[in-house]
Simulated assay, not measured.
Amino acid sequence: MQAGDPLYSHVDCPALIMTASGTVTEYRSSCKVPIVHTGGEVAQESGGISHWWKNTGNAVAVLY
């Protein structure tokens, strides 16, 4: 990763991310097709994946 690169690795830090509201698109190293997350969904981040998320909706996205 370089400075300013949005790609983030979960090699040593697994996480659960809940999309509380809005729509975000995840670009993941293990997927050829982007993953769309909407309000109420939970995503698991582990196993050394690298990824980045982008707000692709028309409203503010809230993630926990």
Rank of each mutant, 00 (worst) to 15 (best):
D5V: 06
V36S: 11
H10C: 02
C31V: 01
P34K: 00
Q2W: 04
A15F: 04
H37L: 11
E26Y: 14
A3L: 04
K54A: 05
C31S: 14
E45W: 10
E41H: 07
T23I: 08
A43G: 12
T56V: 13
V60E: 13
P34F: 00
N55K: 11
G40I: 09
G22L: 06
H10I: 12
I49N: 07
S21L: 05
A3P: 10
T23M: 05
G57A: 03
I35H: 03
T19E: 15
S30E: 15
V42H: 05
Y8W: 03
G48Q: 00
G4C: 01
H10S: 01
P6V: 12
D5P: 06
V42W: 06
G4A: 04
L7M: 15
S29R: 10
A20I: 15
T38S: 07
V42P: 00
T38R: 12
D5G: 06
V11N: 07
I35S: 01
Y27R: 04
C13K: 10
N58S: 14
G47Q: 12
D5R: 03
G22W: 02
G48E: 01
V62H: 07
S29M: 11
Y8T: 08
G39R: 04
Y64R: 02
L7D: 13
T19N: 11
G57H: 04
W52Q: 09
I17M: 05
I17S: 00
I49G: 02
I49V: 12
H51G: 00
G57K: 02
E45L: 07
V62Y: 08
Q44Y: 11
W53H: 06
V62M: 04
C31M: 14
S21R: 14
C31I: 01
V24R: 02
Y27L: 08
M1W: 11
N58L: 04
D5F: 06
T25G: 08
S30N: 15
K54C: 09
G22Q: 02
S9W: 12
V24N: 01
Q2Y: 11
M18P: 08
A43M: 15
S29G: 13
H10W: 03
A59P: 05
W52D: 09
D12H: 09
S9Y: 15
A59W: 08
I49M: 06
